[in-house]
Structures are given as C-alpha cells and as structure tokens.
Design a protein around this nucleic acid. Structure first.
Lengths: 336, 336
DNA sequence: TATTGTTGCGCAAACGTTTGTGCAAATATA
DNA sequence: TATATTTGCACAAACGTTTGCGCAACAATA
C-alpha cells in the first residue's frame, strides 16, 4: 500500500511536492524536471494509486452519486440503473447503490447512510409521498433529484415519464378502437405519479365524451398479486370492461397470469395495454401493446440535473420525458 | 454540517471525549454521566451524523463492497445485484456499483477505481478469462470473489451455478423425451463457465451413448443477435436439430424471436430449453422450459464468502449452487 | 498530613491527501 | 561585490475521526 508519504520519503522529497507532481502542477509550482521524472518513474514502478478517501476528505467531494431504487430487479429500474451508472461514469462519478425495497424505514436508514458517506448527490425513487426522510438531505444542501416517482409539493427536482400523456394516449388507443368500458388497474393512488396517470385516463374519456365509471379504476399496489386480484374483481362485474390498462409491468404481469387462469382470452375477451414496455412483450401470445418509457433518457436527464446542481446551477425542477405507444396485438378493434 | 470538533467546542469538551461518548465507550473511559447526557442531547438537537470518510480513513475500513457486473439490465444480473445488496446491507455494508458492459478496458478502469475507493472487498462477474485486471486487487490483499463466471486457474474464489450438472439435466430431459439430435447454442467458449456447460452437454450424450455431433454446438456470444443467427444456421442444416438448449436468457430470447420469424414452431418443430429462468417464460406460447439459476443463493454465498475473507478467514475457493429444471411446454416428446 | 487511589477529561498523533506560504540556494543584474 | 530575482522545494495546517497516554483534581486511606 504505497502512499504519498512513503514515496516522498523514498525519494527524499516532501509529500506536498509529490502531490503537486502527480496532479500536474509541477510547472505551476516550479518543480524541477528531474524531480518530476524520478517521481513519475517511481510511481510507475510501485503502482501507486491515490487514496480517494483522503482526497475526498480533504476536498469534501467524493465523486460519488447515491442511487436509491425500490427494487433493482424490476426491469424498468434496472434499465434506469444501467443508464444512470453509465452516464455518471462518463463524468467520472461512481454510484453508491442502495435499495429501499418499497420500505419507508429502510429508505430512511439508507438515506442517512448516503449522507454519512458524503455522496455528492442523490438520485432516488421515493417510496412514498412522505418525503420527510429527505429533509436531512436538503438541510445539508445535498443535491437531490427524484426519478419516476415524485412529489411536486416540496419543489424537489424530478425526472419522470410524461405519465398523464402516456396514459392518455393508451386510453385513446382503446377508444379509437371502439372501447368505452375501459378499466385502469392502478397503484397506490396517494402517489402523484399515479394521480397523473389517472388524470390522463380521465382526460381521454372526457375528450371523447365517454362517461368515467369510477368502479373501473381499481388497485392500490404495484405488484403481480395486485394485478391478479384486480382482474378477478373486474371480471366478476355484471358488466366487465372490454379493455384494461395496467399501470406498470408488475400489474401487467399479474393481469396476464390471471387472465390465463381465468380463461379470459386476450384480446378476444379483453384488450390490454401495459404501461411500461418489456423486451418479451413482443413474444407473448398475443404480443402485448405497451407504453414505452424511455429509461435511458430519464436516467441521463437525472444525472445531468444532478451534475448541474452539484456545479452550483439550479436545474429544472420538473422534467417530463415523452412516452411512446407500442402497438402490438393485444388490442382488439370493436369497429367493423 | 456539524462535526465532532464543533460539537466539542460548543460543549467545551474535547473531540476525543465526544467521540468516545458517541461510540458508547463512556464507561470504559470514565466519562461523567453529565457529560454523556449533555452530548447526547446536543447531538440529537443538531442532528449530527459522523463523517464516514474520516472514519474510514482512520480505520482503513470502508464498509463498502464493490460490485462489478457486465450489464445490470440482464435479469439474471439484476436479481444477483438485488440479493447481494440485501445481504450486504444486513451486515451493514454498502455497495459501490460499477458496470463493465462486457468491455475489458472498462473493467480494468473500474477495478482501479474500486481500489482507489478502498472497498473492503470486490464481487465481480469478470468479462473474460484474462483476469490480469485483478492482479492489483490480489496484490493489495483486497478480498475478491467471482460470481457466475470465473477462472479456476488463479485460485480466485468463486460462486456459480453448477453449470455442468445444469446443462446435463437439461440435455437429459431432451434425451428422455426421445431427442438425439440436440443443438447447443453457446457463448464465448474460452470461458470456463461455457466449457463446463458444454461438458455437461457432452456428459449427457456420453452417458446415453448418443453420438456428439460437434456442428450442433454453435455460437460464440451471449446476445440476442447471436441467438438469432445460431438458429438460422442450425435450421439451414440438411438435418436440423430437434431440440435446442440456449445457454443463457439472451440467446434464448434470440432463438425465440428468430423462430417466430422463421416460422419454426416450438415445440412442434423444435424443442427448447433455456439456461436461466425468467418470470415471463411461463407466459410465452408455449411456456418455455428452463434451467433455474438460484441468483439469491449465489448472491448470498458470494457476500458471505467475502465477509469471511474480510474477517480474515479463508473462504471456500469454489462454491457450486444447484440449478433446477423447470418443466413447461417447450419440450415435445418423440416417444409414442 | 502525607500517600495512594480514583475520577474525569484533555492532548496529540495518526490516517493520506492538498495547498498557501516561506525560505534557502542558485542565478542574474548592477 | 553587493543586491535583486528566480528557482526549487519544504513546512505546516487542514479535512473529521479515533485512541493511547498523561495529568490534574479530588477522595480515600494511613
């Protein structure tokens, strides 16, 4: 474990001098070419790598970004993570990764840990609307950006899909295919993201002058089980929906699984669109139409926001990334 | 940003005393109950959080594990990441996450970065058999464990699925269903993991006294495109295989996609098993049989190995985690 | 009243860097 | 030869902790 000090001692120089040489400040501080040469040679030989802890301590800058995700195993989040990592690496930032597992307690702990580790900024998908866990982050002026989920009331910058529009175009797709009895399987409706999506769902109805029937909006959780349960209740209605929009990939998966068990044929008995596109949707029978969320754009934008913030600029508080409807075969047209 | 020093000054104590109080060493060092009380109260009030950089520097221990994955977006790796993170968190370790993107250069850089950041240990899925990038890690005595992929010649501990047996049972499944002309779509065969899988494939043949035809073993890359290409070449044979084992989920996906385009019906024209089970395999038409890799067990074991190693013990050099064949509908029986 | 023991805490070094300042020696100018 | 300038580097503080040691002040014992 060679250190600056040791190298300095070996070469009969002071640590300061060696430091300046290694940081390319030799000219600036009039260090002799000879000294530079010997240091460089020695360093190459012993394979010196600076202790970034010490550097960080001294500079109070860690070149580390904290990333908190509810569940890295969700394909949307893992895509996000990938691009965030890639983008951060381009600017020489590393990622400290923690998971909240959709658990508020854990979220709080992990936020504290990140603060203790002096990350230069935090990207988080918050568990809930209660963002009080992040108060310390703001109090300490650590740049923070929310991603995917958010809470606009605290003025914390966020990057998300254009959820309202995304849902709206999905519902419009149903409507233009003649559907009027359209179910929405939602997640936790206290979340703003969910409210936006519901708003989009309603907007599409209103614009086409289709009655909104509230009982068709079901579900309170982003999970496979919630998706299954929702489909069961919906199909038990005296007048079941002819179309269904699943609010994320987990719910979509649940709906798909339950449909199979219930013998509900898609799209014959039920048309389906899932919010969030997955690589295998095109392989399913039928191929499932989906609202594509641009995880790459979201991730990159989030990192960029954070870096701006770190640089001292005030980034955009709200960034909405467009979605795209991917038409496959899971929507049946009711129009002859 | 309150620090120990500041708190000490505010309370007219020395930093050392405050430190001992916060670390519960008050009794041990005979600190008065009054001092303890005032410090505790003050700390609560100002919301002090220790600077982990400083602690790490002083203790030369960061409580951080480096995790390097080729691509977090691959479901197998993201499952791995999830459990590694979870398991590490249980022992109060954080994860520094970096991606190699299957790129040797990048791998090298990132390893160096981890070293600089003084991680206490590294879990990696190495890009290739050339593990020279990790020499520095070993030289600095940083505990290292490979996961999934490995290189047994350097005696670096690894945790992986029992690849040989996994492949063998998959092929045996084909054989017991009457198949004798079985293709294997492989990845880069310089990799030991791949060699093991190929060995398993061959073992099954040998045991059942079925001729191994080398031309049925194709492919050199773990990618969707490679899977597509492999299927095209295989189906162009004068005598195409009746069964196919895809060596990972990417290849499997490629095969599935290409089969659809080529009009190759599974399992009528071709039976399929994919090494690596994915949540949606049961949803496909037909549901795809797969070899399940226990990412959770692998991840946990890897972390455990590392922690042992950090604790000074010498962990098992080689840990093989059992796989499980998940039978669905993609294997047709040729036996009447 | 002197001696020993205990209580309560401060001091300072160390971890590995970076950086402002200062000061000799070498060189240039007068 | 004396002064001014430049060259080349060392010193020390600082970042925020932890920890071994030491030293007062006070209490207990003889």
């Amino acid at each position: 474990m060679s250190t600056l000090k040791e190298i300095a001692k070996d070469l009969n120089l002071s640590p300061g001098t060696v430091s300046r040489i290694l940081n390319g400040k030799a000219k600036q501080y009039r260090i002799s070419d000879k000294a530079v040469a010997t240091v460089m040679a020695h360093v190459k030989k012993v394979g010196y790598a600076p202790n970034l802890l010490a550097q960080s301590l001294q500079a109070s800058k860690t070149f580390t970004l904290g990333l908190m995700l509810p569940d890295i195993d969700n394909p949307f989040f893992s895509a996000l993570a990938k691009h965030i990592q890639l983008c951060a690496a381009e600017s020489n930032y590393s990622i400290l990764f923690v998971g909240s597992q959709e658990n508020a307690e854990r979220e709080k702990e992990q936020v504290m840990k990140m603060i203790g580790r002096k990350v230069d900024g935090i990207i988080a998908v918050p568990v809930s609307q209660d963002t009080s866990h992040f108060d310390q982050v703001l109090a300490k002026n650590i740049p923070l950006v929310f991603v995917d989920r958010y809470s606009s009331k605290d003025a914390i910058p966020f990057v998300s899909s254009d959820n309202r529009l995304g849902c709206r175009i999905a519902v419009e797709e149903f409507i233009t295919n003649g559907h009027t009895h359209i179910a929405l399987v939602s997640g936790d409706s206290t979340s703003e993201l969910v409210q936006e999506r519901i708003a989009g769902y309603k907007e599409a109805h209103i614009q086409s002058r289709i009655d909104i029937v509230e009982s068709l909006i079901v579900g309170q959780e982003f999970s496979i089980e919630a998706g299954r349960k929702a489909l069961r209740t919906l199909m038990a209605f005296k007048k079941p929906p002819t179309a269904l929009l699943a609010m994320n990939n987990l719910i979509g998966l649940g709906v798909l699984l339950e449909a199979r068990e219930l013998g509900v044929d898609i799209p014959t008995n039920l048309s389906l669109i899932v919010f969030d596109d997955l690589p295998y949707f095109s392989l399913l029978d039928p191929p499932v139409s989906a609202v594509f969320q641009n995880a790459e754009a979201i991730g990159k934008q989030a990192v960029q926001n954070l870096l701006e913030s770190i640089a001292g600029d005030t980034p955009k508080v709200k960034t909405l990334i467009p979605t795209r409807l991917i038409r496959r075969k899971s929507v049946k047209t009711l129009i002859k």
